[in-house]
Each structure stands twice: as C-alpha cells, then as structure tokens.
C-alpha cells in the first residue's frame, strides 16, 4: 500500500482537476470574473477559458540574446520586435509585405512625434486568451495562452517575452525556452504559448501540505493559478480565496 500512498501525493487526479475547475467557474460567476468551462464534445474533458484586454508595457530592445544560442545563422526575426520593426527591411522577413509597409508607416509617425526615439518602452493594448488544461503526464494544471493585437495579429514568442513584467523576465530569461514556449494546444491542435509545467509539483507540494495540516480548504487549481498567473498579467482576486475560506465545510475540495 505504500506505493499507492506515494502515488496519491504526486500532483492531482484528473477528476479532482475537473471538480476544482467547476468550483472556480462558480466562484468566477459570483465575482463577475470571466472564467468559463469549454467542454470537448463527447467526453468529460475540456478546459477553462478566459479572455481579457490589457494594456501592457512592451520592452523594445532585445529581451534575450537568441543569437548566442542559435545554431542556425539564417534564422529570421530574432531580436527585433514585430511592433516596431527595425528600419532595415531585410530583418523583418517573417511579416508579409503588406503588414511590413503599414507598420513601417506607423513607425515613421511615431518618429515624428518623437516618442519612439525617446522612450525605451511602449504601451500596447493586447488581447489575452488563457486556457487551463489538465496534463496527465505531470498530473497538474497547465496554462496555455495566446496574445493578439487589437488588429488580430498574433504575437511572437519574442514579443510575448517583451510583455512579461521585468521582475519576472529578469529571473526567467536564463532559460527562456524552458519557461514559456510555443506548443501545440493538445485539444485544439493550434499553436499556443505554454508555461512549462515541469516545476509545478515542486512549488505546489508545500502549499498543499500546509493546507492539509491546518485543515484549510484549498482549491488546487485556484492556488496554482494565483502563483503562475501574475507572470502573464492574470491576477486572481483575493476574494476567490476568502470566499473559499468562508465556505469551508464538507464540500471543500480535498487535494488527492
């Protein structure tokens, strides 16, 4: 039976994940947050989804030295933001001709205003789409997301890093590709960014243990989200937790 016990302390069960998500959606409705559950047809599987528009400070200089780790000298687009392509058109190869020319015009306008040349950073309004899925490999929730400009253009990985708050960016940029990477959404098959889950177990274990010892109710997904969310501007209002405390009782979610 010891094996069974060890098994149970590793991450969370899929069933528990769905239950936690259900509770989170209920709370979200009460708090007028916008999380919803998107079921996958014909199964109990699905994902939590939320979209929000945020204004974000974008760092304009290169966020990490990709050239140093790149073994492909012919790689395109690294080091330059899609928002403000460099003047040399050869460096904006990934954009199609139309978008390049229109951006170049915008860029010129900014130069006229004298903003772009003075400030190192710029403020952009972006639309974020967050998905929370269950990973059966890590037995933990995983955050997938994508980001669009208001014109509907999707952000590159480089630009996503530009929008991460400097406090996080400086800590994580040593291994950028191991923290946020572009991945296929396992249920939709489309490119998304993913916050890598391989350290989740590490930071969740003490939290869950402490809650256990103090007989506090804990919604695993909610607690996890309050740790990883802020990295991508996804704040979890404190009310979720205070509500959970006051509702403590037999219906509270036990981590497995």
């Amino acid at each position: 039976m010891t094996g069974k016990h060890a098994e149970m302390s590793f991450g969370m069960l899929e069933e528990t994940f769905y239950h936690c998500c259900q509770l989170l959606v209920q709370q979200s409705q009460q708090l007028r947050d916008s999380w919803s559950w998107v079921p996958l047809q014909g199964s109990q599987e699905g994902y939590l989804k939320k979209t929000q528009v945020r204004s974000v400070v974008i760092k304009l200089s290169p966020v990490w030295d990709q050239a140093a780790s790149s073994s492909d000298p012919g790689s395109h687009g690294s080091g330059h933001s899609q928002f403000y392509p460099q003047k040399k058109s050869a460096h904006v190869a990934p954009c199609d001709a139309d978008s390049v020319s229109s951006e170049m015009n915008d860029d010129d306008d900014d130069d006229d205003d004298g903003i772009c040349t003075v400030s190192e950073d710029s403020i952009q309004v972006l639309q974020y789409e967050y998905h929370i899925l269950y990973s059966c490999s890590y037995r933990n929730p995983v955050l997938y997301f994508r980001v669009f400009t208001l014109e509907g253009r999707s952000l590159s990985l480089e630009d996503v890093w530009r929008s991460v708050h400097p406090n996080f960016r400086l800590q994580l940029q040593n291994s950028p590709l191991n923290t946020i990477s572009q991945q296929e959404h396992p249920l939709l098959g489309q490119p998304f960014f993913m916050l890598h889950p391989c350290r989740t177990e590490e930071f969740m274990r003490p939290v869950v243990q402490a809650a256990h010892e103090q007989h506090r109710p804990v919604n695993y997904v909610l607690t996890w989200l309050s740790v990883v969310g802020p990295l991508l501007g996804l704040d979890v209002p404190l009310k979720y937790h205070t509500q959970l405390q006051s509702a403590a009782g037999p219906s509270s979610t036990e981590p497995d």
Binding site: Q66, S70, S71, H76, S156, S181, Q183, E184, P191
Partner: peptide, 16 residues
C-alpha cells in the same frame, strides 16, 4: 500561423 509553430532556430527544436 494558425497551424504551425514557429521555428526560428535549432534551439527551438532542442527545447521542444
């Protein structure tokens, strides 16, 4: 963009 992941260099393949 809607179908494929970007692959700007071998380090992206390595990370994957």
């Amino acid at each position: 963009d809607q179908d494929l992941l970007h692959c700007s260099s071998n380090s992206v393949v390595e990370a994957h």
